[in-house]
């Protein structure tokens, strides 16, 4: 494939030391992900997907192993340096949306820019947030607070927030976990659009259906990679949505 990998993992291990028993959540993962890839990480519950994602997202440190993000050896960085990396290289979408309550969509999207190393003017913050919301098709809801938005809309706000600093990498831990199938397809549509525009995306999911919108599927088992293969019968969100709508129409007509 082309040039240098965005994510380069070599024998990553994560051991949770809680009281008497050590939990060996990730047991030696070696993996390269290149720019422009769209990867799904799958596996049963407790297989270590979230643990691995948190390590990739620089939210947590692996117990051992080497991790290069965009060529930088992340294992050697301190708390503040990790925060900086999270701020300008990574966009993270959480399973539970994790928006600030009682805060408008626009302000939620602006938040990462408040922590940019470079000062961003209020006007630029506003413009970039709006653009980001537009990208996920939610510009008209900028003034709405999370409790005035549907689950899918909240997830789009979370995606807009992840995109606002133009990260090299978009990470998503079960972005469709709480959503119905139509909304899930819509979100996958957003991801596919972003990926087509060149963004590298890594996404954790339970659902095989959802994983089929990606380009590469990795299955974890007991903290190890079990399979890692290209998605053969890839789905297109736009088409799927069309089919779904037609099916719904058919039900109504019948």
């Amino acid at each position: 494939m082309q040039n240098r990998p965005v994510i380069q993992l070599a024998d990553i291990q994560k051991i949770y030391r809680t009281g008497e028993v050590d939990v060996h959540a990730v047991r030696g993962v070696t993996l390269d992900i290149f720019p422009g890839e769209f990867v799904a990480i799958m596996g049963s519950s407790g297989s270590g997907k979230s643990t691995l994602m948190n390590a990739i997202g620089c939210l947590d440190r692996p117990t051992s192993g080497l991790y290069r993000l965009d060529g930088i050896d992340v294992s050697a960085l301190n708390r503040d340096e990790l925060a900086k990396i999270r701020n300008d290289k990574i966009g993270f979408v959480f399973q539970g949306f994790n928006l600030l309550s009682r805060t408008t969509a626009l302000e939620n999207v602006e938040m990462p820019m408040l922590y940019n190393h470079r000062r961003v003017s209020a006007q630029e913050q506003h413009e970039r947030s709006l653009k980001s919301l537009e990208l996920v098709g939610l510009a008209t809801r900028a003034d709405h607070k999370p409790n005035q938005l549907s689950g899918g809309q909240q997830q789009r706000v979370a995606i807009a927030r992840a995109l606002v600093n133009q990260p090299a990498l978009l990470l998503a831990d079960e972005p469709t976990g709480n959503l119905d199938s139509q909304t899930s397809i819509e979100i996958m549509g957003v991801f596919q659009k972003l990926n087509d525009a060149g963004m590298s995306i890594v996404m954790v999911t339970h659902e095989l259906d959802v994983a089929r919108y990606t380009k590469r599927m990795i299955i974890l088992k007991d903290g190890k990679i079990r399979t890692d293969e290209k998605v053969a019968d890839r789905l297109n969100a736009e088409n799927e949505l069309k089919h779904l709508k037609q099916a719904q129409e058919a039900v109504k007509l019948a």
Binding site: R79, D80, A83, R86, N87, N98, M111, L114, N116
Partner: peptide
């Protein structure tokens, strides 16, 4: 959340 998006 703030720390996740880059607050030190």
């Amino acid at each position: 959340i703030r720390m996740a998006v880059g607050a030190r």
